[in-house]
Amino acid sequence: MSQSPDTPNLRFSAKAVAELESLKTHYPNLKACILPALWIAQREYGGHLPPEAIAEVAHRLKRSPAEVQGVATFYSMYNTGHKPGRHMIEVCTCLTCSVCGAWDVAAYLEQKLGIKMGETTPDGMFTLHGVECLNACDRAPLIQVGDEYHGPMDEQKIDALLERLRNEPESKVVALADALVQVHLKEEEREKARRAAEAVRN
């Protein structure tokens, strides 16, 4: 590939490029596209935002990588640090959940997976995380996995959920990023992206 030294390696799919083009029409400037573009990037880069992903977003929005990195690191749902496991399990330990058994849920998950909060299983399958209120406290104790909320949790439900996730080849981290991209887009914009993806395939 012959690219100028300033052009980072570009990895966005045709679909992603079409999605970003539509998003640009939602705001009066490119800077406002940074957050949604980071969701696209998190999906395109497999659930993670390595420096190359940041550079690509910056390039496509004509911003500096430092600016985009600064924005991304502010928000806890952008995975700018270590690459997370295939599925991220977020355990709410906030107020209602903590008085409704969240510490037991957390301890049980740690024991079942053999890791502590913040760690990833050696096979790269699961990352465990403690999170603040997910604002579904009527279902305490609650956990989030990608685009799904689960609660109230008990040991049996945790067992069943882990079993299901082990057999789920699609990363839940990627599923969440994709879901959030899709909700930004109008019907005809989603259709446009679908056609762009198809055109490449044919």
Binding site: H26, L35, P36, F74, Y75, S76, H184
Partner: peptide
């Protein structure tokens, strides 16, 4: 009318 999503910040 557009939807814009947050990314984890109270």
């Amino acid at each position: 009318l557009h939807i814009h999503t947050g990314a984890g910040s109270y």
